[in-house]
Design a protein around this nucleic acid. Sequence first.
DNA 1: ACCCTTTCGCTACGACCCGTAGCGTAACTG
DNA 2: CAGTTACGCTACGGGTCGTAGCGAAAGGGT
Lengths: 232, 232
Amino acid sequence: MVAPMHRCPLTGTSSPAGRAGPRSRTGRPRSAEADRAILDATRAALVELGWGKLTMGDVAARAKVAKTTLYRRWANKNELVLDAVAVLFDELELPDRGCLQADIEGVVLQFASLLARPETKTALMAVVAESTTDEALRVRIRSAVVERQKRLVILGRERAQARGELPPDPAGEEGAAAAGRAVGLIFDVIAGAVVHRALVSAEPVDELWAQQFSALLLTGLAGLAEAGPAGA
Amino acid sequence: MVAPMHRCPLTGTSSPAGRAGPRSRTGRPRSAEADRAILDATRAALVELGWGKLTMGDVAARAKVAKTTLYRRWANKNELVLDAVAVLFDELELPDRGCLQADIEGVVLQFASLLARPETKTALMAVVAESTTDEALRVRIRSAVVERQKRLVILGRERAQARGELPPDPAGEEGAAAAGRAVGLIFDVIAGAVVHRALVSAEPVDELWAQQFSALLLTGLAGLAEAGPAGA
DNA sequence: ACCCTTTCGCTACGACCCGTAGCGTAACTG
DNA sequence: CAGTTACGCTACGGGTCGTAGCGAAAGGGT
C-alpha cells in the first residue's frame, strides 16, 4: 500500500481520492482522541516555542503519541500546523451592531484579537510563507481559511443590503461575477490591512484604528455604490 | 571580546552601540565584496530553494565563502535573509501619473510585481513569521522595510494635496499626529491588501484588481476628506 | 619596516531534528 | 477466528545548526 495519508478534518476529503471510496471499512480505526490530542499539542507547542522551534518530536511527546502516528496523518509540519490553526478562524463571527460601519469595526477587532494569540500569529505567516513553494499547501490554505472566512464578508454585505446601506447585487451572470469580485476585494482589504498592521507594522489594532479603518472602507464602499451601482 | 557581530547595511548602525564608537579602526577590514556575494547568494538560494530549504551552508558555498564568515556578520538565517530582501523594496517608486487614483494603481502594480518575485514572496512572510517570537527581528523589519517604504505614501499624499485632490494637513501638533496616523493607516491598507491578495488568497493582482482597489481606496479618502477635513 | 589587530578559510565537532523502517502488539470487522 | 489496519517503540542514516580551534592573510599605527 502506498499510504492513505491523512484525511483533512475540515473538508473531510482524504488525500488519494476524496471520491466516496470504500473508506477502509476494515481494520483498527484511527483514534479520534489522538487527533484531538495532537492538534491540541500542536497549538500548545506553537504558543511556547513558535513556528521556528516547533518540532514533530516535541508535539508527539506532548500528545503522548508516537512520532510515527503523526506521520501517518500529516505529511509534514506545514499541514499539521495549518490544520491545528485553521479551526481557530471558525470562531470568528459577525455581530449585528445595527449598521455596516459598526459591523466592520466589530469583525476587525475580533480578527485582531485572534491574531493577538501567539499560536495564530506565528503559524499563519509561516504557513503562508511555506505555501509559496508548496502548491498543495496553497490550495489547502485557500479551502481551509480563505474561502471559509469569506462568509463573513458575504453575510455583512447581505445585511447591509437588507438595511439599504448598499445597493442590491445586479442580476444576471455578469452581476454575480461582479459581486464575487467585490467580496474578494473587500476580504483582502480587511484581512490584509489587519494582518499587516498587527504583524508587519507591529502596531496595535485598537479601537481608534478600527474606527478609522472602517470609516475609510465604508466611505469607499458607499461612495462607489452611489457613483456606479453597476459595479464598474 | 564578546563579538561585534554585524553592522546593518541599511541603517549603518553596528550592534553593540551604533554610537560613533571607535569602530575598530585597526585590523583587517571586512571584505565588502564578501558582503555583496553573500547577499546575492542568499537571494539566489531563496529563488531556487525557498525559505524553508535554504541553508547557511548552501549560501556560503554559493558565495564562495566559509560558513564561519556568515556567522561573523549575521547572527542567524532570519537576519541574513531580511537584509538580503529588504533592499529590493527600495526599488519601488511612485510614478507621477497625474492623478491620485492612477498613482495608487501604479504603486500597487509595482508592489505586486515585486511580490511576484520568488525570493521576495518566500522571504517576506517567513521573516514576519519569525519576528513574532523575535523582538530584535521585529524592530529590524520596522526600520528596514516598514518605516522606509512609508515614504511612498507620504509622497503620494503630498502630490495629491498639491493637486488639490486632498485637503492639506491641519496645522498644529494634533494635526501632525492625525496625519501620521493617516499615513500609517493608508500604508497598512495598501500593502496589506496587496500582500493578502497575492500570497494568502493566492490570486493575481492584475490591472482590473488594481483599478477596483484604488477606486475603493480613493473614494474612501476623498469622501472622508469632504465629510470631516479635521481628520476625525 | 615592524608589530598588533582583526578577518578569513578550513576542518572538525556535538547536538539536534527529520522522516522512515521494522517489529510486535492492540483494536476492530466479517 | 482470520484478516486488516492502527499503534507504540526502537533504531537509524542523512542532514543542518552553530561553534571552536587553528594557521594564514590583510590591513592600520608608529
